[in-house]
Design a protein around this nucleic acid. Structure first.
Length: 290
DNA sequence: ATTTGTCCCTGCGGGC
DNA sequence: TGCCCGCAGGGACAAA
């Protein structure tokens, strides 16, 4: 579930509770969560200090300090969490527990950071910094990520959308093209741009691409400002829901009236995902759309 | 070379 | 009321 705005929100709400603390102990309840395994991950992160909290695509990143005095000072480590569909990163208050806890990081001041995940699709990866061949840049998923949509130019977006008969929504969801866009924000930006999800990218001209880029950036910024979208599982690091679901114009509105023209919203399957659109405001392209 | 389908896993809501 | 089916925000992989 968590897409770019949700992970961004988690990073922001997590930072005050973890920055400057050391990771004292890692408690693994589900051996499948840490990659490649709990012992390796724990060895990489234990004893390090959280120096920065960041996000790349849908990955939540904890940048950890070097470990002077250790056997080998690797110059730091990076912990990367991917929450997939139902993962959560939650700061546990003293005595509190949370359901479906898979890993708990015990920090130096008794702060506990829990990684919980009902469906267990989420993963945790840890990488050393400064060790050739072992850094996060060697992780194919990470290495292949496209640029951040909020850090790219319209010109770059127009080019990266590419050509061919690939459907535009599939291209938007391709993390190697643009990083961090998922089903919700793809549908929302296509609706705002007036482009059907199954439009071949070939049929979208420069002005259509600019419109789509503007819509995407707007939607992502608004969603970040609203602390993300909480459909069911998503919560920030303190367990609070986001509010952007109250601003959806397309996602989840099948059968409801289009907020622009009143037509009944419809769904279709694109790139293996349900896609909601307005048959009137997002028409089938007649050749080259401008 | 792309692109679609299947699978990972659990829970929930709708339909019967 | 209760059961069953389909579907859910993502991505890896196999196969067409």
């Amino acid at each position: 579930m968590p897409e770019l705005p949700e992970v961004e929100t988690i990073a922001r709400t997590l930072a005050p509770d973890v920055l400057g603390r050391d990771i004292a102990r890692v408690e693994v309840f589900d051996p499948a969560a840490p990659q490649p395994n709990g012992a390796t991950l724990a060895a990489l992160v234990t004893g390090r200090r959280v120096e920065r909290v960041g996000r790349r695509a849908k990955l939540l990143l904890l940048f950890l300090s070097s470990r002077p005095g250790g056997d080998v000072d690797y110059g730091g480590a990076v912990l990367a969490a991917h929450l997939r569909m139902t993962g959560r990163l939650i700061i546990l208050l003293p005595g509190a527990t949370t359901a479906n806890t898979r890993v708990v990081f015990h920090l130096s001041d008794a702060t506990r950071l829990a990684f919980a995940d009902v469906r267990r699709f989420g993963t945790l990866h840890a990488f050393p910094v400064g060790v050739p061949g072992r850094g996060i840049e060697t992780w194919p998923f990470y290495a292949n990520l496209g640029p951040e949509p909020l850090e790219m130019t319209a010109r770059e977006f127009r080019a990266r959308l590419g050509g061919g008969r690939t459907r535009v929504k599939a291209r938007l969801l391709d993390q190697s093209v643009i990083a961090g866009v998922g089903n919700i924000y793809a549908d929302e930006s296509l609706f705002r741009a007036g482009i059907r999800p199954d439009t071949p990218v070939d049929a979208i001209g420069p002005s259509g691409r600019d419109k789509l880029f503007t819509a995407l950036v707007d939607v992502l910024r608004l969603a970040i400002a609203e602390n993300g979208s909480s459909i069911r599982d998503y919560r920030d690091a303190h367990g609070d829901a986001g509010a952007f679901q109250n601003h959806f114009r397309a996602y989840g509105r099948e059968g409801e009236a289009c907020l622009v023209c009143g037509a009944a919203m419809r769904t279709m399957r694109v790139a293996g995902r349900t896609s909601t659109f307005c048959p009137n405001c997002q028409p089938v392209p007649d050749g080259k759309t401008r």
